[in-house]
Amino acid sequence: MIASWASKSLPDYQREKYAVVTLVDCRPLLDPVLPSNHAGFYHSAILNTHDVGGETLWELANKNYTAFVNAMKNNKHFTDMSDLNYLMCKAIENPGLTPSSSLRTALISVFEDPVFDDSTEMHEEIGLEDYVGCASAHGVGPSIAIFDTIRNGKLDCICVYPSPLHSREQMQGLVDDMKRILVEGCNIENQHIEP
């Protein structure tokens, strides 16, 4: 969100509203509980909007996290399901209501829980050097989807975006800004921790 806001070169006092969709795996919340490998799509979504402008990475991260935790405590992923479905249908029927008639309903979508993948040995056995895992929904949805995986102890992120709404150059610039903001934010945080 900070990278998107910064790309507009706005003054610090001018804030922009951004929506974030967090996909929640509902299998462990059902009765009976479904195992994580149960086939099917059992995700719901929590939509939160945030005013962005001038705050630090960690201030925004804390605001984001607090809003998400409060939404989960209030079962928003279940209670808002019909509202979200209604809004998605209205966006499909009336694309002109979305920014640039793009059918984009949020800036970004992320998953609640990271995926852990420690299958290097198996991949080496079959000769697999690299792969990408993500899902795509055509039609209405967010501008950017981030699929994060902890692969063999390292963070591996995939950024999926609709084309031609966004160009490869535009997205590369945004991802470069995101990396810079994360590195700078972590360096500042580490300076506060050191004695």
Rank of each mutant, 00 (worst) to 15 (best):
I2H: 07
A3E: 14
A3N: 09
S4M: 11
W5T: 05
A6P: 02
S7R: 14
S9K: 15
Y13D: 13
Q14K: 11
R15W: 00
E16M: 09
K17Y: 00
V20M: 13
L23F: 02
V24R: 02
C26F: 08
L29K: 11
L29C: 02
L30V: 06
P32I: 01
P32H: 01
P32Y: 01
P35R: 06
S36L: 13
S36H: 04
H38G: 01
G40E: 00
G40K: 06
G40A: 03
F41Y: 12
Y42V: 03
S44F: 00
A45F: 01
I46K: 02
L47Q: 02
L47K: 07
H50D: 05
V52M: 03
G53L: 04
E55K: 04
T56C: 10
W58L: 08
W58P: 00
E59F: 00
E59T: 10
A61C: 09
A61N: 04
N62Y: 02
N64F: 03
Y65N: 11
T66M: 02
T66C: 03
A71H: 02
N75F: 02
K76V: 10
K76R: 09
T79F: 05
T79M: 01
D80R: 05
D80Y: 01
S82C: 07
L84H: 12
N85R: 14
M88K: 11
C89R: 14
K90N: 09
E93L: 10
L97W: 06
L97Q: 11
S101M: 03
S101I: 01
S102Q: 06
S102M: 03
S102L: 04
T105N: 04
L107H: 10
S109H: 01
F111Q: 15
E112K: 09
P114L: 09
D118C: 15
S119E: 10
S119N: 15
T120L: 14
E121D: 13
E121H: 12
M122T: 14
H123S: 14
L128V: 13
D130F: 12
V132G: 02
G133C: 09
A137L: 11
H138I: 11
G139A: 08
V140N: 01
G141T: 08
P142N: 12
I144T: 07
I144F: 12
A145M: 13
I146F: 06
I146S: 08
I146G: 04
I146H: 05
T149I: 13
I150S: 09
G153H: 05
G153W: 04
C157Q: 11
V160K: 07
V160H: 04
Y161S: 07
P162L: 07
S163T: 12
L165E: 09
H166W: 12
S167Y: 03
E169R: 10
E169K: 10
Q172I: 06
D176R: 15
D176G: 08
D176Q: 14
D177H: 08
K179Q: 09
R180V: 06
R180M: 06
I181W: 03
V183F: 00
V183L: 08
V183N: 06
E184F: 03
E184H: 11
E184A: 13
G185D: 04
I188V: 12
I188A: 13
E189L: 15
E189H: 12
N190F: 07
N190R: 15
